[in-house]
Design a binder for these strands. Structure first.
Length: 275
DNA sequence: CACCATGTTCCTTG
DNA sequence: CCAAGGAACATGGT
């Protein structure tokens, strides 16, 4: 998403701001967001964990400030022609002149705010050098929680969500039920590799297929993980366990199982990931 | 009607 | 102070 949006918005000037759901900009107020953004230009766009970090400044030599976005589970961010009406669940719209930047979110779990201190609590980027096997192993040792639950902790490593937590554990051959502190060094190594593999492939996948950035397609915009439609070369199945309960494991043929941990679904292969 | 959903934060309990 | 568990947030799909 960052790679898609960056060239579209960098250099663009915000002419106006419309907030339809004040909740998503909290604790920033509607007045504050409008005052800060109106007249400012985007200078860069980056990402930290699951957060998008927009940088803007109000004049060529003015001080940069950050606008932080998060998509929650159903968020979408895209540009559309200025004349196109806003979607039903548009949360925020930034008027860029000929085009409008739209943040829509059916469940309104996401954010687009000037508040950025939440970034300080994030763990290392999984694809950066700071995320080492040693870091992962040491961080896991401090908790008795099941390893799957710990992978969702964004202070341990930033950016692994519920889908990829199950996927990474399957690649590592580690049971999601295993207590984090009981992982061996060898398991931590495989999990470290599994996390990087699954994220690399997901990013590769996302940049290879024509994603529906406007979220208007049937398969819902940002990414797709269901059954591949009959006549499409794009949507080859890529998830090995997530949402595949009852289906055979691609590695061993055993039936994939689902159970609930910390109120989230976990999927695993009982044969490849024994307790 | 019941249950499920890609996430985070807040509250309570120990 | 911390860890852990559960509810809350809000809407739509099955």
């Amino acid at each position: 998403m960052v790679r898609h949006l960056a060239p579209l918005i960098i250099g663009q000037r915000v002419r106006g701001v419309v907030v339809r759901r004040p909740k998503v900009i909290a604790p920033t107020s509607v007045e504050e967001l409008g005052a800060r953004l109106t007249g400012a230009r985007f200078t860069s766009l980056g990402r930290r964990g699951k957060y998008l970090v927009f940088r803007l400044r109000r004049s060529p030599k003015g001080e940069e400030f950050a606008l932080v976005g998060h998509l929650g589970m159903t968020g979408r961010m895209y540009l559309q022609p200025a004349k196109t009406p806003l979607p039903k669940h548009a949360a925020v719209m930034l008027d860029l002149g000929a085009r409008h930047f739209v943040y829509e979110d059916t469940r309104y779990f996401g954010r687009l705010t000037l508040e950025h201190t939440t970034l300080d609590g994030l763990g290392p980027e999984p694809m950066h050098d700071a995320f080492t096997v040693e870091h992962l192993h040491a961080a896991l040792r401090r908790s008795a929680q099941p390893v799957k639950v710990k992978l969702l902790d964004q202070s341990l490593v930033a950016g692994v969500g519920n889908i990829y937590a199950s996927e990474a554990l399957h690649r590592a051959g580690v049971s999601p039920r295993r207590s984090a502190r009981k992982l061996t060094r060898a398991q931590a190594e495989r999990l470290h590799a599994g996390i990087r593999e699954v994220l690399s492939e997901a990013i590769q996948f996302g940049s290879t297929i024509p994603l529906d950035w406007a979220g208007t397609g049937k398969r819902g915009g940002l990414f797709y993980y269901g059954q591949p439609p009959e006549s499409s070369d794009y949507y080859t199945e890529r998830l090995r366990v997530y949402d595949r309960a009852g289906q055979p494991c691609g590695q061993c043929g055993a039936s994939i199982r689902r159970f609930v941990q910390a109120a989230r679904s976990t999927f695993y292969c009982p044969a490849c990931q024994p307790r």
